[in-house]
Nucleic acid binder design. Structure first.
Lengths: 156, 156
DNA sequence: GCTATTTACTCAGCATACTGATTGTCAGTA
DNA sequence: TACTGACAATCAGTATGCTGAGTAAATAGC
């Protein structure tokens, strides 16, 4: 019987928890207040201005229900602008505000630093091997998640 | 500039989400209703009867605040028994009930199956390499989490 | 034995994640 | 045009995870 503590799922959960803690640690040294999830969303919108929420969810593999609250908070912070789409009145169109752009610029180095800290136990070759295996494992289970990553089709 | 979608933190988050979905999928085929977190807690208590909540939290690397709710739900389901410790009146002592034991027995194979599915994109050698790197990476960042794993010292 | 500190647990509050339901809109078709 | 099915967003409800605060009990230092 495999030990619970050494099961893939358990180790993945723990690494994810550590990764989140590391993210907050690094980002806390900037003036910007964003969560890992909020950063990913903000960054994605900055690279696809005018994107709608559903497409955004697909891009960064979020649940569509979750994205509502995440965008809510980014709008409340003044980082995102959410307006009704003219082409499709069901959809909301997202854009990064100037304040959001400034925040992104400031926070990106901290996020990059966090990525390094997360893998600080691995040397360069190991880190690369880990990332390769991570991508491969993920590719095979992506569809099993309710929030699979969906390749981008349009920018709205 | 590294793509957000290919950052370690992002990939780890996505794999964790898939892992949770896979867990629920496999466990749904049994009569038992437990979450990944609840399973880990139940399993840990079954291996250390009489453990207190703080020690349990350390064993499976949970936040101590979170454990309260997890145990609440396991008690509500009739899987765990929570009683005041006689040695330390601050502490609550945990034991798996007979119903909990039966649930564990039934659900363990499903949990094992889920572990296999999680890594189905990797062949045996790759899976082993992945696990080795995962353990190594985790060892180096464990202390950065608010809920690091703590080696067991006593069974209460 | 008394006091200061630490510890175990709980609670309030916030931010993910998910299931399932609802509302409004779009698109295809009879 | 009316109907049907699909889709975008939101909401209600539940379960993690975390920060910070509070209560009660144990322990260390004197």
């Amino acid at each position: 019987m495999q030990e619970t503590n050494d099961m893939p799922g358990h180790l993945i959960r723990r690494l994810q928890q550590a990764a989140v803690a590391i993210f907050y640690r690094e980002v806390a040294e900037t003036d910007v207040d964003v969560s890992p999830v909020q950063f990913a969303a903000l960054d994605a919108v900055s690279k696809a201005p005018g994107i709608d929420q559903a497409t955004l969810a697909g891009l960064i593999a979020y649940d569509r229900t979750t994205i509502t609250g995440v965008v809510d908070r980014l709008v409340a912070k003044g980082y995102l602008q959410r307006t009704q789409s003219e082409k499709d009145r069901r959809a909301k169109v997202l854009k990064v505000t100037e304040k959001g752009q400034a925040a992104l610029l400031q926070v990106r180095p901290a996020v990059m630093a966090a990525q390094t800290v997360m893998l600080r136990g691995l040397d360069e070759a190991e880190a690369e091997a880990f990332m390769t295996l991570l991508r491969k494992a993920l590719g095979a289970v992506n569809e099993l998640s309710r929030a699979p990553m969906v390749a981008r089709e349009n920018a709205g």
